[in-house]
Design a protein around this nucleic acid. Structure first.
Lengths: 351, 351
DNA sequence: TTGTAGGCGTTATCAG
DNA sequence: CTGATAACGCCTACAA
C-alpha cells in the first residue's frame, strides 16, 4: 500500500493547478491567491504530502542546509571538554538561522577501506574544522578539493582559510604575571596535548610542541617563567590533571608554589592532587586554569583563570560560514580572553 | 573563472566516453576496462572533478547518507552526560558502515518563526530520538509524517517504533537489595529529572513521574524501600548531585545511612556533599550510582553501581536503523545492566 | 564492455 | 497571479 510517496506533481494534479503553482504555495516565494493556496494545501493533506522532498530541493537549489563539523577524535573524548560543548552550541546557534544543521563527522583513524568515506559523499554546504592539527590535514584537502567553504577553529590551516582564534599566548602570560606579582618563583606548568599522539610526561626544555594551542599557552607562561618545568598531559580532563599533579607534587624538595594549568579541567585535577598530597589551595600552592568554564564538581573552589568566549567562538565560526555561503568575504576573528581572579591563587609563602 | 563545477558529463566528454561509463567508473558497480577507467580518471583530474555531486546522487538513489539525532536540550547540557557521549560514539560506529553521518538537530524551544525548521527540510534517511519524552513528541510526529524510519533510545514512543531500552527497574532494584543486604534501612534516593520542566526538590510520595528512566529506576528502588524519600534533581551532573546531597544530609536527625543515586554523576556529587557534611564514604554513608561510566575527577572512589552498555546501546540503535534502511524489520533491544561492587558501599553502622 | 534514453522531484524563469 | 518549460547532476535498465 505504501506504493510511492506523493510528489508535488501529484498534489498539483489533485488540486487542479500546475506544479509550479503548487511549489510556490510551499515556498512562499511568490504571492498566491487564497483560494488556490487552500486548494493546494487540502490536496496535499489528502495525499499525505508533507512538503517538498529535501533531496530534490537540494539538487535544484544547490544547497543542502548542512554544515559538517569534522573532529579528530571520538565524540566521547571531544565532548568531555566543556569548551568544545559550548563551541558546538554557539555553532548550532549561528547556523540555525540558515536553516542548517550540524553533521558530525569523525575522522576515523581506523577507517575500513570499504567504508564509504562520508566526507566525500555527504551533501554539505560548508565545514568547520575544530582543533586543527595534522590529523585533520586529509579532511581539509578533501574539503578544499570539493570547493566547499571551510572555517578552522583554533589552529592555523594556512592562507585563505578563515580562522577563529584566541589570544592564547597573551592571555596565558597574564596569568603568569599574576603569579609573579604574588611572589611566586617556583612554578610548574601543566599542558594540554603536546602532539597528535598525546605523549604524556615532562617536556624537554627545547621540545617542539606541534599543537598550536598548547604551544602558544606554553610560550605565554614561559614569557614570565622561562625555566618553568612543564608536564604534558594526554588531554583536557580532571583525571589527566590529577595525574600531572601527582607527578608535580611527588618530590617535596622540588615542589612548586604555583601551577599554571592550560585548562580549567586540568587545574581541577591539579587541585585534587594537591589536596591528596596534603597541600592546601591556595595557601600552600596556587593554581590557575584556562577557559573560564563551569567545572562540574569543583564546587568549593572558584578558579583563577582566563575566561575565553567559547560560545562566541562557535557563533563566529557560524557567522563566517554564513558569510561564505552568502558569497561575502569571511572574516577571521581573534578573540580575547579576560583574566578572572578566583580563590585558587594567593601570595607565595602565605601557607 | 570558476564558472561552474565540472559534471560527470563533462568528464565523459573529455574522456571520450559516454556519461554512463564515466558514472560506472566512479561507482564501481560494473566492470570497466582498465584503459577506459584511466582515461576517465585522467579527464576527471584535469577538470578538477572530485566525484559525483552528493546532492544529485542523493536524489537519484533516494538516500542521503544522513541520520538525524534529535536532542531535546542544548548540546552543552546533553553532552555533559558520559552516557550520552558513549551512546553517540556507538551510534557513530554503527552508521559509519552505511556511509552515513550524524546530523545533530536541537529541538529549539525558542524557535523563531522565520527560522527554517531543519527537521522538516533536512535530507535525512532516518532519525534517532534520545531520551524520548513529551518534548520530543512534536519532532516525532514530523518525522513520522515524512515517513522516515525512527528509533527511540530510552523511553517509549508507542507501537511500531523500535526502541533501545534498559532494564532500569530490575537493575536499580539490585542496588537496593545490595544495600538492604548490608543492613541499611534509612535510605534516600536521588533521582534524575522528574519532568520535562526539571523541577528540583523532594518528591511527593505519590508524585507522578513522567520521565520513563527516572520513574523506572525509582520504582526499582521502592521495590525494596517503599518509603524511601526521593529528591529530584534538574539533571545528571556532579553539581546537581551535590545540591541534592546537601539537602539530604542537612538534618542530622533524619540523615540516611545510604543513598541511591540514579546516575554516577549524581552519586559523585552526593559523595562530595557527604564529605562536606563530615561524613565518611562508605563508613558513615553508602552511595550507589547508575551507569558505570568513568566519572572524571572521582579518582579515589570507585562507585558501587549498575554498569549499562552505553556504547552498545548506540550501536544497537544504529543497527536498527541499518535494518530499516535495508527494508528489514528492526528489532527493539532490551539491554541488561550488571551490578558492580565498588568501594562506596559498606555494612550499615560500620562507622 | 559501452552507449542511449529516461526520470529522480523540485524550482527559477519567463510569458501569459 | 498562474502555467509551461527547462534545467539541477546523476544513475540504471536496456539495447547494442
Amino acid at each position: 500500500m505504501t506504493n510511492r510517496r506523493a510528489t508535488i506533481a501529484d498534489v498539483a494534479r489533485v488540486a487542479g493547478v500546475s506544479p509550479s503553482t503548487a511549489s510556490v504555495v510551499f515556498s512562499g516565494k511568490t504571492p498566491v491567491s487564497d483560494t488556490t493556496r487552500i486548494r493546494v494545501i487540502d490536496a496535499a493533506e489528502s495525499l499525505g504530502y508533507t512538503g517538498p522532498d529535501p533531496r530534490a530541493a537540494s539538487l535544484r537549489l544547490g544547497r543542502s542546509g548542512i554544515v559538517a563539523v569534522v573532529v579528530s577524535s571520538s565524540l566521547n573524548f571531544m565532548f568531555v571538554d566543556p569548551v568544545q560543548r559550548l563551541l558546538m552550541d554557539g555553532l548550532a546557534d549561528a547556523v540555525a538561522p540558515l536553516g542548517a544543521g550540524l553533521l558530525l563527522l569523525r575522522r576515523d583513524a581506523e577507517l575500513d577501506i570499504e567504508n564509504a568515506p562520508t566526507l566525500t559523499t555527504a551533501s554539505i554546504d560548508a565545514a568547520v574544522l575544530i582543533g586543527y592539527d595534522a590529523l585533520l590535514l586529509e579532511p581539509l584537502q578533501i574539503i578544499r578539493a570539493r570547493g566547499i567553504p571551510v572555517v578552522v577553529v583554533e589552529g592555523d590551516a594556512g592562507e585563505g582559510i578563515p580562522r577563529i582564534a584566541l589570544d592564547n599566548r597573551v592571555a596565558q602570560r597574564r596569568a603568569a604575571e599574576h603569579l609573579r606579582d604574588l611572589g611566586h618563583t617556583r612554578v610548574a606548568i601543566v599542558t594540554l596535548w603536546q602532539d597528535a599522539a598525546g605523549t604524556v610526561g615532562w617536556l624537554a626544555p627545547d621540545a617542539a610542541v606541534s599543537l598550536d594551542v598548547t604551544r602558544e599557552r606554553l610560550l605565554g607562561a614561559r614569557d614570565v617563567f622561562p625555566d618553568a618545568p612543564a608536564f604534558a598531559t594526554g588531554g583536557s580532563s580532571i583525571d589527566d590533571g590529577f595525574a600531572a599533579g601527582r607527578a608535580i607534587f611527588a618530590d617535596p624538595l622540588t615542589r612548586p608554589t604555583a601551577v599554571i594549568a592550560q585548562s580549567d579541567l586540568l587545574a581541577a585535577g591539579v587541585i585534587r592532587a594537591a589536596e591528596e598530597a596534603g597541600l592546601r589551595v591556595p595557601a600552600d600552592v596556587s593554581v590557575t586554569g584556562f577557559d573560564g568554564v563551569p567545572v562540574d564538581g569543583l564546587a568549593p573552589y572558584e578558579l583563577t583563570t582566563l575566561v575565553q568566549p567559547a560560545t562566541e567562538k562557535g557563533r563566529a565560526a557560524g557567522a563566517a560560514i554564513a558569510a561564505m555561503l552568502d558569497g561575502r568575504e569571511p572574516a577571521s576573528v581573534d578573540f580575547t580572553s579576560t583574566f578572572r581572579r578566583g580563590n585558587t591563587t594567593a601570595r607565595a609563602g602565605d601557607g
